[in-house]
Write a protein that binds this DNA or RNA. Structure first.
Length: 103
DNA sequence: GGCCTGACGCGAA
DNA sequence: CTTCGCGCCAGGC
């Protein structure tokens, strides 16, 4: 039996580098179209952050989950960290926190 | 079981 | 484009 939380974790772990998914899309992929907010709560509660386990296949790349319209959204370790990680994966951010592919 | 809390989303002003 | 308000949902107490 997989709980909503487990499905969300799986979906997020399946996001490849360079790809982004919004909280809403993750919610939908996990089976709850309007649970974007709940997804955020789950990300926040996630202990196995990608930062501390970058090479661990069990790590959860939660920095690839952004808010609607490709706005940055939040991050447990600080939005600063999130920006930095995304920058390494080919994304740059505008002053209004909009993510855009660079180069 | 009920109440409170948000890493959200979206339409309206 | 900015700000507000309200709906939505899982989690933690």
């Amino acid at each position: 039996m997989s709980t909503f939380r487990d499905r969300v974790i799986n979906v997020v772990r399946a996001i490849p580098p360079g790809r982004l998914m919004t909280y809403g899309e993750v919610a939908q992929a996990a089976g709850k179209l309007r649970a974007a907010r709940a997804v955020g709560a789950i990300m926040r509660a996630n202990k196995l952050s990608f930062i501390a386990h970058a090479n661990d296949p069990n790590a959860i790349p939660c920095h690839r989950v952004v808010a609607a319209k490709y706005r940055l959204g939040g991050f447990n370790a600080g939005t600063k960290q999130k920006q930095q990680l995304l920058r390494k994966e080919g994304w740059s951010i505008t002053k209004k926190q909009k993510l855009e592919r660079h180069v």
